[in-house]
Write a protein that binds this DNA or RNA. Sequence first.
RNA 1: GCCGGGGUGGCCGAGGGGUUAGGCGGCGGGCUGCAGACCCGCCGAGAUGGGUUCGAAUCCCAUCCCCGGCUCCA
Length: 475
Amino acid sequence: MRLRIFNTLGMRKEDFVPLRDGEVRIYACGPTVYDFIHIGNARAFVFMDIVHRYLEYKGFRVIFVSNITDVDDKIIRRSQETGLSIQQIGEIYSEAYFNDIEALNIMKPDVCPRATQHISEMIEVIQKLIEKGFAYQVDGDVYFDVSKFEDYGKLSGNKMEALEMGARIEVNPKKRNPADFALWKSRKEGEPAWYSPWGWGRPGWHIECSTMAMRYLGETFDIHMGGKDLIFPHHENEIAQAESLTGKPFARYWLHNEWLTVNGQKMSKSLGNFITVQDALKMCSPQVLRFFLISAHYRSPLDFNKESLEQAKASLEKILNAIERLLSLEERTKKGENEDALLSQVYEAKKRFEEAMDDDFNTPLAIAAIFDIVKAINIYSSKERQIESTTKKEVYGVVRTLLEDVLGIKIETKGKEKPRSELVDSLMNIILEFRQEMRRRKEWKISDEIRDKLRKIGVIIEDTPHGTRWQLKEV
RNA sequence: GCCGGGGUGGCCGAGGGGUUAGGCGGCGGGCUGCAGACCCGCCGAGAUGGGUUCGAAUCCCAUCCCCGGCUCCA
């Protein structure tokens, strides 16, 4: 089935047809490295990763570019506050960014261009825009002349007239039109600066993405993504710059994710509800966080709160339990009577999964399809203790692909990692042997007490028909 | 003021004119010495008022409420 995508440009679902057969070129707006990334950023980056992964799953060759903004007002302010150079700030927070996305199992982009390494290309682009009459210079600043670009507003739906009327920006007298935006800003005291035909200065925010996207993906490419707050003015301005320059369409599909709120409120530093990824990972495992972030459709608002996180944890646990149950089935060489039913249910679910993802990346519906597989495994294992090894491999293969490769939820690490050692293993063996002996003697009080006390220190033991299993868990 | 998105069962969350969403939770039963896990069954919804229709959570119109963009923001 064909993938359908909701395109912000046009505000409707469209069939996805890439520019080149079998290849998809994507530009995703990355972080401004002035602070640790928060869980709202994480939602955006995880969604971008889902797009990345699903397109690869569908067999496309994906070229994924995601920038790092390392020169900008916020970074400069941070630098002034801390006394660190903007290079130092950039290094600290871009390293933190890479650590965080790795923790969330977000695939590394093919290219992560940095603004400061593309200044000369930006200058070239600005110069061409001036030559073509789309930009003008005032003192050391260069502004884009919005009135020269007819399609201005086509992405956000903003009308020029309305923009002017609603403008709450203090009017910059240098601008011809209040909606004009800076391509180049002349140097101010204490700011980093590069030499340009207009004197020392630095690029405006929007020009970096247009320039780097075209540099790595060509004048026209397939998908451009970001949070919905970027629609205006950032993405609108990117379109204006790029399309004025080339006369060709810039990105063909624009995807924007909704906000993440915290306890019903928008995150902000003043409210004190700003939660970084690192904060969140003190509350739950990365898999749970990721599972939570995709438990709502990307174009729906999602609220981060304790209860929802706990529900996500319980749901994911159910999935992982089923996989563990599947893997613990004894293997045999002959196929049993329930195996065909299992396989057909699994393939039916896989189909539902794909249909869900094809419909504008409907991850909650895709997760529901995974629960069909969970159900099928649990029903099977409630009837049988054995399974043909090829069936087991097949079922595991499907669930592993959908959960790990597409949704990016790792199966291996369940719960919180705790150190295991030979000593711990030996001690546990002694304890469990002793408890088994108590159970044999029907000393239930003693054996239950052992179980309860172990639970309190984070060791979960389960009695099964095949013996007692134990594992370490979050307390 | 202009533009956009919503209001679904105790909670999270899909679909979107007639057919079971799914998950969490709760209740009953089964398996268990008991737990847990798992199986079976059950629980319950569509902001409000009108309208269209044989039939509406789904379409239309009003009303109320929430959230967002128009300004740095994923």
